[in-house]
Amino acid sequence: MAKKSANVTARVQPEIKRQAEAVLEKIGLPVSVLIDTLYRQIIMTGGVPYSLTVPNLPTRDNMTDAEFNAMMEKGYHQAMTGEGISADEAFEKIRKGM
């Protein structure tokens, strides 16, 4: 096995680093192993081994008035019948999905 002597330095947002390292710790994967594996995949595939596209999420700009009104009506109905979740719960789900 080749001797590991090269260092990689990267600046990331502290909260992003904390969340990612928490996930890696849960699965028992050191950051150095993850980086080594990523580099090997880049070499083997000749590029980044995952998609770097922006998801096509619905926005008001690409909705018709009828689509927007239907979405708002659905949300209103969910709120009135207690089907919705609190903002705190919604943001927690978003954070977990990152």
Rank of each mutant, 00 (worst) to 15 (best):
M44Y: 14
K26E: 12
A6W: 01
D65F: 01
R40S: 14
I16A: 08
K4E: 11
R11W: 06
G97K: 08
Q41H: 15
K4A: 14
K93Y: 09
M63A: 00
I27W: 00
S86N: 13
K26D: 13
A2P: 11
N7L: 09
L34K: 03
G75T: 00
K17L: 11
M1Q: 11
V48W: 10
E67A: 00
G28K: 01
A90P: 01
E67R: 03
Q41I: 09
S51A: 08
V33M: 12
K93H: 08
A20T: 06
Q41L: 15
A22V: 02
I42N: 13
A79G: 15
R40V: 10
D65L: 02
L24F: 02
L24A: 04
Q78T: 09
R18T: 04
E73S: 10
F91R: 13
A79K: 08
Q41A: 14
M44L: 15
N56M: 00
A87T: 13
K17E: 01
R95Q: 11
V48Q: 02
I16P: 02
N62A: 00
R95T: 04
N56S: 02
R18L: 05
G82W: 05
E21D: 08
T59R: 03
E73M: 07
A10W: 07
A90L: 15
L34W: 02
D36G: 15
E89C: 11
K17G: 05
T59C: 00
I16C: 00
K17W: 08
T9L: 06
A20R: 03
L29P: 06
M71A: 09
M80Q: 10
T9R: 05
I43F: 15
N7Q: 13
L38D: 12
L57S: 02
R11H: 06
D88C: 08
T9A: 09
L52G: 06
P55L: 05
V54P: 03
A6S: 12
F91I: 13
P55W: 04
L57I: 01
D36V: 11
L57E: 07
T45A: 10
A79I: 13
N56D: 03
Y50K: 04
D36P: 12
V23C: 01
I35Q: 09
Q78C: 09
R40D: 15
N56P: 04
G47A: 06
T45Q: 15
K93E: 09
E73W: 06
T53D: 06
P58F: 01
M63F: 02
D61C: 04
A90H: 10
Q19F: 05
E67D: 05
L29F: 07
L24P: 03
L38E: 10
T64K: 00
V48T: 13
L38C: 13
R11D: 10
D36Y: 12
E15N: 05
A90M: 13
G47S: 15
H77K: 12
P49A: 03
K96Q: 14
T64L: 02
M44S: 14
G28C: 02
E25H: 06
S51C: 10
R60P: 05
L38I: 14
Q13T: 06
V12R: 06
A2T: 15
M1D: 13
D61K: 07
P55R: 05
G47H: 12
G47C: 10
G97D: 13
V33G: 07
